[in-house]
Design a protein around this nucleic acid. Structure first.
Lengths: 259, 259
DNA sequence: CGTGAGCTTGATGAGGGTCAAAATAGGTGG
DNA sequence: CCACCTATTTTGACCCTCATCAAGCTCACG
């Protein structure tokens, strides 16, 4: 595994920044609706709950473990991940968060946050006060059902990651990871024609996601490139041959679908 | 990975068997209470919902994926696991179920079952009709909270598995796995003094759990034996040196605790 | 007492880790 | 715009963990 500078690359670097309460809750609302159809007034109610829309720079902790959750956190833009720090120099990522997702589903049972959530690239998150949510939850139970379905998908995604790490080799792992991110970003309209999307991760971070060394990640990427399956440079990925990549990965996106 | 006989070791072998509605729902009730305190009348209500207590022999499918969940399934005795079949000969286990646990938390959002659940050894399960549960859920919300906390722990456990497979070597993986099972079984009173407990798994099944070949599992067990950390034979495990084993595994059971 | 499932051991090699260094970005201040 | 500095990507060499193949062993069970 890679050695990061010991002075604290695992730490927050620059402070988060508050943002005008404007931007697209739309991703989030569309996502919830896709999970479980909401009445229009429910959608509006949820939108009204989102406060303190905040921007984070890369590699900042959006959520810290051990903290009790006092609000639900929603990713509105960018990319984030769950991770566990293993020692000062090593990290294992355990899940990925795309716009529209809750950062942590523990709020549903007011469980404490169980893992750190970190931004990759620039992100925007919104906060929902759990007290306020509880007051409307009785009248608008569909919202809770949608959130529970999100949690169910999160669980399925974790199991898929277990399979990825337990039973697949480097090429398959990377291919599968790219398929999943591609699939999920496409679901929220963040993949442009030609299969191109932003993926603000370094190769060393791929290693932390896939349980591989940085060097081997590099060589694995080259294999996928040579097979004309992908293109990848400075945080931009293009899936050249989605079916081909899915075949390599044995990817079947059904585990990411609600029903 | 190991080759299993192709004629269908992944299939059900012997039919499940109905059992008198007697035995200990106690494990389950104690578990729920540990997750979130229930009123005595809530406990009684839950106990009354458990129907069709059924015994399964080893290697039977308790739940199949793709099926919509019409009832919550509770493990009352024995050991079971989540798994995904990869091809006719390979399997990856993705989670473990001890007495008192729900076999699948998807019922909370009436999501379909997302993975197969299989008995290891002899097991007893109980079924809870979701319709009946819904009717009492409004009056007894604590039950749902407890179940959601169980789901949250299940999620945390999956993430821990990801870490195990992504970032630890064979000895650590096995040690961690044994620590987790030991910890969870002890929580429901199934570990006798001296750290001895039943673990009805073959070495080949350990391999499917840990992402290792059968041969390497065998050699890894021998290492732990040589270090006087464990004893293991015909489905009986003894943890000789719990702190030592936990140190090897970097095991910290907090992720298995509700708050 | 044979037979098969599971456990154990040995030999061999591939996949991937580690170390070290070169080649490329980006990024900053002058 | 250039010079410098640092983060990231790429390449090469070497080695270790673990998979694979193959065979022998043990034990429960019919």
């Amino acid at each position: 595994m890679t050695f990061l500078p010991v002075d604290g690359d695992l730490q927050v670097r620059t402070p988060p920044e508050l943002v005008a309460d404007r931007p697209a809750h739309d991703v989030f609302l569309r996502r919830l609706n896709g999970l479980y159809p909401l009445h229009p007034h429910e959608s509006r109610a949820v939108a009204g709950l989102i406060h303190n829309v905040t921007a984070f720079g890369p590699h900042q902790n959006i959520l810290m473990d051990q903290r009790p959750s006092t609000e639900a956190v929603v990713l509105l833009d960018g990319l984030a991940c769950h991770y566990r720090a293993l020692d000062t120099a090593r990290r294992q990522m355990t899940g990925f968060i795309v716009p529209g997702d809750f950062c942590d589903s523990g709020f549903l049972s007011s469980s404490p946050v169980r893992q750190c959530v970190m931004s990759l690239g620039d992100t925007i998150v919104g906060y929902i006060d759990l007290g306020q949510l509880a007051t409307i939850a009785d009248k608008l139970p569909n919202i809770i059902v949608a959130a529970m379905r999100a949690a169910s998908i999160e669980q399925a995604s974790s199991r898929e990651l277990v399979i990825n790490l337990g039973a697949r080799d480097a090429v398959q792992r990377l291919a599968h990871f790219l398929c999943e991110i591609h699939y999920r970003l496409r679901g929220v309209g963040l993949v442009s024609a030609g299969g191109k999307f932003e993926l603000p991760m370094t190769q060393s971070e791929f290693g932390e996601a896939l349980g591989l060394s940085t060097v081997h990640v590099n060589r694995t990427i080259q294999q996928l490139r040579r097979k004309k399956l992908i293109t990848m440079a400075q945080g931009l990925v293009t899936i050249l041959d989605q079916p081909g990549l899915a075949a390599v990965a044995q990817f079947d996106g059904r585990y990411l679908r609600p029903n």
